[in-house]
Design a protein around this nucleic acid. Sequence first.
RNA 1: GCGCCCGUAGCUCAGGGGAUAGAGCGUUGGGUUGCGGACCCAAAGGCCGGAGGUUCGAAUCCUCCCGGGCGUACCA
Length: 704
Amino acid sequence: MEPGARTIDLRPLPFEGTWGSASTIARMVAGELVTQELESSGALEGLSKKETKRLVNEKVGDRAQELAATVADSLRTTGRFTTVEAVNGYINISYDTSSMTANLVREVLTADATYGHATPGSRRQKVMIEHSQLNTHKAAHVGHLRNICLGVAVTNISEAGGFTTMPVTYIGDIGRHVVRCLWCYSAFHEGEEPEGNASRGRWLGEIYAESVNRLNFRKDVLSVLHRVTQEDEAFVEAVDKMLKNLWREQVEGEDVAYLLGRITSQQEIKVEDLRDENVLVTFWPIVGEQLRSEAEMAAVAAEDGASAPNDHLAEWEQLNIHMADWWPQVPTWIEQEHATFQLWEKKDPAFVALWEKTRGWSVDELKEIFDEFGAHFDAWFWESAIEDAGRQIVRELLERGIAEISDGLPVVKIDERLGLEKETYHTLPILRSDGTTLYSTKDLALTQEKFEEYGVDQSIWVVDVRQSLYFDQITKILELYGFEQAANSLHLSYEFVTLPTGVISSRKGNAPMLEDVRNAMLERARAVIQEKNPSLPAEQQQQIAQDIAIGAIKYVMLARDGNKVIVFDPDEALSFDGHAAPYIQYAHARACRILEHAGVTDGAILGMIDSIEFGQLQPEELSLLQQIAEFPGIVQRAADEHRPLHITNYVYELARRFNDFYHACPVLQSEEPVRSARLALVTTTRTTLRNGLALLGIAAPRQM
RNA sequence: GCGCCCGUAGCUCAGGGGAUAGAGCGUUGGGUUGCGGACCCAAAGGCCGGAGGUUCGAAUCCUCCCGGGCGUACCA
């Protein structure tokens, strides 16, 4: 080993109540020395690797401690540190807390709202962050909530980390969902819309959900039937009897035989195979009777034992409401949907006018949501506006032989083009066979535009992890196309949000909508404020409830690593206890309160900073100061890694330490000079808490 | 098949190769003649999915295995 070739590592002491650094150098050196000594003494000869290690490990601890003690002795004689100790093979040094504290307090109060931030633009990189890609004509759900919260926080943190950021959004204002919604609107609901643009937007979301229920009605019926035959043995056994009843009622015999065969063999039923498509309308009530009698049997059995609730019956009942009415019409509706799509493709004036009008309703609603969650954008991109540019790229890709026609549609066989043996990027279709555009068509053009028109150095997509492969494909295709900057794209992915009962599926109707979650949180927050702080004026209560409700949602969405699925439990999200935003906001409010009572301002404390005595600090005070001192480093790390999680953890820990301090160290009742020192600590904490919460997009109310 | 991700306390999750692996919820028992009890303290609860490897040192890095999730040609 080369002397001096090693860097001496220093890390904060992992104990609360001390302020200093530790080095592991003695342990590292001891390991090598012990090995060398044993080797030269010949003690290791003939020993296996494992035996060698055991021998080395036996001696290394004591040796490290000896070395550490030697180093500690010589460091101590320099007189530059408050204490130097050799503990367990580590060299622990601690600093003069008084001067450290004064410097820190001065730094925080001077920087104020920018404490923890790097110099703006110090990273010399312009980063475009695309997030909150919501759709018009369709309601947003809790999954979108995670996206918005992440996008806002990542933007704030990147900016604080010294990057120049450009937040943008990309709105799905055209596509199948819009066509479906508008078909349903025209066919069933024209003129029924409520007052007010944003509420019309919400109402459109309901129309969209209805359109899906109508168009997928047959599929849903068959899927329920299939699941019942797969999961319910009693049902299959009973089917034979039921179908014989049908036979007696002289329903088409061939179809009955078909249903019988399919169900008893647990195979899927296909409408194409039925002579009379509507035989299922006749069959459906019989299915219900059977399911109901099974449920009754289960209820009886449940009295002396456990029994699962019958999901199948609930699903049956849901579908049964519209069975007779909807089932026969589904094929016509699907034709109408296709025709509506063609209206868009042909830019039919009446349709375009309807689209523009309804789009406006939705956009007003989206703006409300963005406003409430603190999402601001330097640019809005629209799917509808990028279709032509997308088609142009597809043409060029075809001309250059990068794309090809396969099975009647333009695709890029990426692995083939890259000469990869192993399937990696697969094949991506870039236009539908009928010439209508896909998401990919538009993203190819948009990605290029971001770099060329906006001159960004890096482009970040904040999007669900399920699209990882897709974004790799887009990037690779653009690289093949010769667009070098494509490599500067980053897919910042996050896992989806599920419910305790399972994956969110809007079809089952169990996906909490963004709106519902927000309203529930707000209502709960209002009730708590009313209880805790009834004397506040109503208007203020309203504002604080808003800060708390939105803060609590954001914290849940950000306090988990991106690659972890969030199980969104509405009850838990509504809890204001423990590791959650209100805990942190509460600590902040308490700090504000103390300062209010003392009647001091930041400026006053900053002015007298040199005369404040920070001499003897309590462990709780030191622990709090250390945490405050770490903030800038944490911000930097969160920015580099694009992980708001570091900030949520940090700010919680800071609040926790402040509470410890609060309980252990009286401020207003204490005597000078301690009182001033503690007031300085409180104001420093308050600023840091506020700054940390601001990065997360969470408000820091002064009272709550 | 192939690819990506996850597996840490009863549950939900932190954990930057370093000292005795930490929080919250839940459970049990405590605390204010003090600046806000949305708080605090204590107890119980862990072969960090398994097996190898690298290292003075592994929850952390590497390999394999097991279990779960997601993706994988005209959804977005």
